[in-house]
Computed example of a mutant assay.
Amino acid sequence: MANKKILPIPQVLDVLNPFKVKKQRLMNFNPAIGTAMRQPADCTKITTFNYSPSTLEERAITNVQDVFPYLESSNITWINVDGIRKEDIHAIATCFMIHPLLEEDILSVGQRAKMDEIGEHMFCLLPMMYFNSETSTVEQEQVSILLGKNFVISFQDDPTRDVFDPIREKLRIASSRIRSGSTDYLCYALIDIIVDNYFVVLDKLGERIELMEDLVQHQPTTKTLARINFLKRELLIFKRAISPVRDLVNGFLKSESDLLEDRDTKYFKDVFDHIIQCTELAETYRDTVLNLQEMYHTQLNLKLNEIMKVLAVVTTLMAPLTLIAGIYGMNFQNMPELKSENGYYITLGAMGILLVFMIWLFRKRGWF
């Protein structure tokens, strides 16, 4: 978290506002069935990379039927489908002989990360995580990856963003490892870049946690507690989304499919190590947020103790003065001091001397 940008407290309050995203989180929620609903994309954007160690063909396709000839290509083909529409997915599934169960998984929404082997295909589904800096929320996009003999097809919901640009840049370099690799290496690269982006999201959450530490120390209010709970919820959403990815990668390691080469096993082991680290770091951040809650309550108790201390000192200082004033406020006839010409000034002077003496005594003993 080097070069961290420290925001002033007012900006921190705005950044960590949990109420700004409540409406946005409910936009695609169907109260009748209690689940999120997939909104069909307005259009499907398809990009293809057909490559070998010495050749590369990169295309942007608008008609889904234009990807059908790649089924017979002798080169490796990566087909990336941005925007999920049922008719387009069904056409691709029919051409590439994708099992109907896998087609349903591609069209589904809100599923846990998982890995399946059906027929001649290997399939995995996992979340692509993003961090929205404007609302400080964790957002996720469901990504499906299908591994075939000479092709890899990836399906995404959002055509406006993904994390695959570094892979595209490597594919454009003739000497890159990915150009000389097999289809399972391309599948590994896609999964690896998604998992690596989890650390980017965690870094952003870590920055928010550090900002919250400053906020708890300076402004331990009820709104601060709401923001702590909001941050804890975002961490929980993140951890729940990425935890099943460990089993997904482990499925590739245990698979005996002919689509996976033994020489690429070490790469999937590396991804497995990364997802373990990411999960442990997310758990550490969650514990830190719980500590922030305890710190918040501690700050409130300290503040309350300071208030009670001041009130106790004031009450103690005023008690003798109140006693003297009460004695001379009684309506008895035979009080000799009532006839004294300077009795009023003597009483005030005695009360003042007593007050100064008590303040000196309390300060000497370190009570305030």
Rank of each mutant, 00 (worst) to 15 (best):
N3C: 08
N3T: 13
I6T: 14
L13H: 06
V15K: 15
V15R: 14
V15I: 10
F19S: 14
K22W: 04
K23S: 08
L26R: 12
L26I: 04
N28C: 00
F29Y: 14
P31S: 11
I33V: 15
M37E: 14
P40I: 07
C43S: 14
K45H: 14
I46T: 06
P53Q: 12
S54Y: 05
S54K: 12
E57N: 15
E57M: 12
T62G: 10
P69W: 03
S73L: 05
S73P: 06
N80V: 08
I84L: 14
H90K: 10
I92N: 03
T94V: 11
L102E: 02
E103H: 00
Q111L: 01
R112A: 05
A113E: 04
D116T: 03
E117H: 13
E120Q: 08
F123N: 02
F123V: 01
L125V: 10
M128W: 03
F131T: 04
T135L: 13
S136M: 08
S136P: 10
S136D: 12
Q140A: 07
V143S: 02
G148A: 12
K149E: 06
F151K: 04
V152R: 00
D157C: 03
P159T: 06
V163H: 08
F164G: 00
D165L: 10
D165G: 01
I167N: 04
E169L: 09
K170E: 10
I173Y: 00
A174N: 05
I178S: 01
R179S: 07
G181L: 04
G181A: 04
T183D: 00
D184G: 00
L186V: 12
A189R: 12
L190I: 09
I191N: 00
D192C: 02
I194C: 03
Y198L: 04
V200E: 13
D203I: 01
E207D: 15
E213H: 06
D214V: 01
L215R: 05
L215W: 05
H218L: 13
K223A: 08
L225P: 00
R227W: 00
F230L: 01
L231M: 11
K232S: 15
E234T: 02
L236K: 03
F238G: 01
K239E: 04
S243R: 11
S243A: 08
L248Q: 03
V249L: 15
N250H: 12
L253Q: 06
E256W: 07
D258E: 09
R263V: 13
V271Y: 00
F272T: 00
I275R: 08
T279P: 01
A282R: 02
E283P: 01
T284I: 13
L290A: 15
H297S: 12
T298A: 14
L300V: 15
N301K: 05
L304I: 15
E306M: 11
I307N: 06
V310Q: 03
V310L: 09
T316N: 05
L323C: 10
Y328I: 06
F332H: 09
N334Y: 15
N334R: 14
N342T: 11
G343A: 13
Y345L: 15
T347D: 00
L348T: 10
A350L: 15
G352S: 13
L355D: 02
M358E: 10
M358L: 14
